[in-house]
Simulated scan of single mutants.
Amino acid sequence: MSTPIPALHEESIASWKTNAAYWDQGIGQDGNKYWNRLQLPALERMIPFPSQTEPRVLELATGNGLVARWLAGKRASVLATDVSTEMLEIAASREMPEHQGKISYRQLDVTSSEALDALAQGNSTHELIEMGNKMREKLISQTGGFDVVIMNMAIMDVSTIEPLAAALPKLLKKDGIFVATVLHPVFFTCGARRDIQIVDGGPDGYPVIVRAKTIEKYLDVPPYYGVALYGQPAQQAYYHRPMHELFSTFFKTGLVMDAMEEPAFTSEDATPDRIESTSNYTQLPSILAFRMRRVA
């Protein structure tokens, strides 16, 4: 018998509490290969940064604050949120002097319609997170909607996205954008198997390594447990959504998609001593990046 989604959701929250410090060590101040080679380039192409204004950005599932720090470096004012207060404390501790006053923090469960509605209405004083001796409340006291809502590599960690989709038209300004990256539903969260063939007699006389993936299920894949970083203390739950299900959830609330990318590693990212490494699969995208826009 499979674990009910509400129970999985609570286990997911507990796993991020347990994994917070290990995750932070793995991602670090400047991010890992996934961030630098796949996520960051896609986000830079999808998020415009006007030279004369400071966009207001809501980040969901900030983790150790990597994206928030990058956004602050682009002169954005950022409200960084996460379901894990442990993650928020780590994110605040990683701030550099140049980030002071640009990033605020708040605990937020993106599966909670009530919490999202409270944020959209500006009713959030009771949920401010105190970091050290400073209360981060600059963005939380403002109203009028965000220019950008961003969720980097976290949708597959969330048990339901319907509350978020419903809240986005209220959280965004008109023509505001929602930008997200996620493990690719076709080549990752469907449980695809990595296949490696070693074929003798290549053009230069040496064996040729042929990499492929086998996909047995895509439309109906139940939640399952796995790890994001090898060695993490607790497994986490993954929630697979085929692309039509993922996108239609946001379309139903009136958002329009105007950009999508499927970033893949290149030969420059190869890891020769680990033939099974994802970075060696240069013809199969590792993540999916997309942008939705509020047009009304």
Rank of each mutant, 00 (worst) to 15 (best):
T143P: 06
F187G: 01
V182A: 03
L183S: 11
N133T: 07
N123Q: 09
S141E: 12
G145Y: 10
D200L: 01
D117E: 11
D117K: 00
L128Y: 12
A115G: 06
T181L: 10
K173V: 08
Q121T: 12
S124A: 01
L164F: 03
E127K: 07
F188N: 14
P169L: 12
I177A: 13
M151C: 08
L164V: 15
T181D: 02
E114Q: 04
R194E: 02
G132I: 02
N123Y: 05
K173I: 13
D109E: 00
F187S: 02
P163R: 00
I155M: 14
E162P: 15
F178G: 00
Q197S: 02
V110E: 08
A165N: 11
L116T: 00
I196E: 08
L168F: 03
Q197G: 08
I198R: 08
K134M: 11
H126T: 02
K138P: 15
R193L: 13
K134N: 15
E162R: 11
D200H: 07
L168W: 01
N123P: 07
D157R: 05
A166V: 14
D147V: 15
M153C: 05
A180E: 02
G122D: 03
D200G: 05
Q197D: 10
L183M: 05
D147N: 09
G191S: 12
V158I: 13
A165I: 11
V148Y: 10
V158D: 10
M151I: 06
G144T: 03
F178K: 01
S112N: 04
K134C: 05
P163N: 13
G145A: 02
V182E: 07
S112E: 00
H126P: 02
Q197Y: 11
Q197V: 14
I196Q: 15
H184Y: 05
P169Q: 08
E130S: 15
I196T: 13
A115I: 10
E114H: 04
S112I: 06
A120P: 11
A120T: 07
L172R: 04
D117Q: 01
T111N: 04
A165H: 15
E127M: 04
I196W: 12
E137A: 09
D195Y: 15
D117W: 04
S113W: 00
T181G: 12
K174S: 00
V148M: 10
Q142Y: 06
V199T: 12
V179T: 01
S112P: 12
Q121H: 14
L172F: 10
E137Y: 01
T143D: 08
D195E: 05
D157W: 04
K173M: 01
G176H: 06
L168T: 07
D117V: 04
P185Q: 02
E127D: 00
I155K: 09
L183I: 14
